[in-house]
Simulated assay, not measured.
Amino acid sequence: MFKLDEFKQLVKDFSDIADFLVIYIAEAHSTDGWAFTNNIDINQHRTLEERLSAAQILVQKEPLCPVVVDEMNNVTAIKYGALPERLYVLQAGKVVYKGGMGPWGYSPLEVRSFLEKMK
């Protein structure tokens, strides 16, 4: 949730030309794993119910777009190389922008530049 405000602004500014979706995947910085200090207290998900519960924390932050949850076999995270987080732009079912891996490569500003060129 480090750059959630930047993401929310992106949704506000480009919702007229793009549909946004957040896919909640495995917890990258779980309390019982490799966690940052001052991080939200979330253990690694062992069940779908735990993952859904953790995703509700994000939903409460109102990301301004739908939030869905990856399956417990992490099929989406594996297919898109999304762990710990990554931004994509798809057009007509094809990936036209693939952002760097988060947290350091997670750049809503890069997506903003990309989408501005599509207007």
Rank of each mutant, 00 (worst) to 15 (best):
M1L: 14
M1S: 11
M1P: 06
M1G: 13
F2D: 09
K3N: 05
K3C: 05
D5E: 12
D5N: 14
D5T: 09
E6A: 06
E6L: 08
F7S: 11
Q9Y: 13
Q9R: 07
L10G: 01
V11K: 05
K12E: 14
K12C: 08
D13L: 14
F14H: 12
S15G: 04
S15T: 15
D16G: 12
D16H: 14
I17G: 02
I17R: 09
I17A: 03
I17L: 10
A18H: 04
D19L: 04
F20N: 06
L21G: 02
V22T: 10
Y24G: 03
Y24D: 06
Y24K: 05
I25N: 00
A26D: 09
A28W: 14
A28Y: 11
A28N: 13
A28C: 09
T31A: 04
D32S: 00
G33R: 04
G33M: 05
W34K: 14
T37H: 04
N39A: 08
I40R: 02
D41V: 03
D41Q: 08
I42A: 03
I42N: 05
N43V: 09
Q44A: 04
R46Q: 07
R46L: 15
R46F: 13
E50M: 09
R51H: 12
R51E: 09
L52R: 02
S53M: 07
A54Q: 08
A55W: 13
A55I: 13
Q56H: 12
Q56V: 14
Q56L: 13
Q56A: 10
Q56Y: 10
I57A: 11
I57H: 08
Q60W: 11
Q60T: 13
E62G: 02
E62P: 00
P63K: 04
P66N: 10
V67G: 03
V67P: 12
V68K: 07
V69R: 01
V69W: 07
V69M: 01
D70Q: 03
E71F: 11
E71V: 12
M72P: 00
M72K: 02
N73R: 01
N73V: 02
N74I: 03
V75D: 12
V75Y: 14
T76I: 13
T76R: 00
A77C: 06
A77S: 11
A77V: 11
A77D: 08
A77I: 01
A77E: 15
I78G: 00
Y80C: 02
Y80H: 02
A82M: 02
A82K: 06
A82T: 01
P84V: 00
E85A: 00
R86V: 13
L87Y: 14
V89F: 05
L90S: 01
L90P: 02
Q91I: 03
Q91L: 10
A92P: 00
G93K: 07
K94W: 07
K94S: 13
V95Q: 05
V96H: 01
Y97C: 03
G99L: 08
G99T: 14
G99R: 07
G100D: 09
M101Q: 07
M101E: 09
M101W: 11
G102F: 15
G102M: 05
G102C: 09
P103S: 06
W104D: 09
G105F: 13
S107E: 10
L109W: 08
E110I: 03
V111Y: 12
V111E: 04
V111P: 07
R112F: 15
L115K: 09
L115N: 05
L115Y: 15
K117G: 12
M118R: 13
M118I: 10
K119P: 00
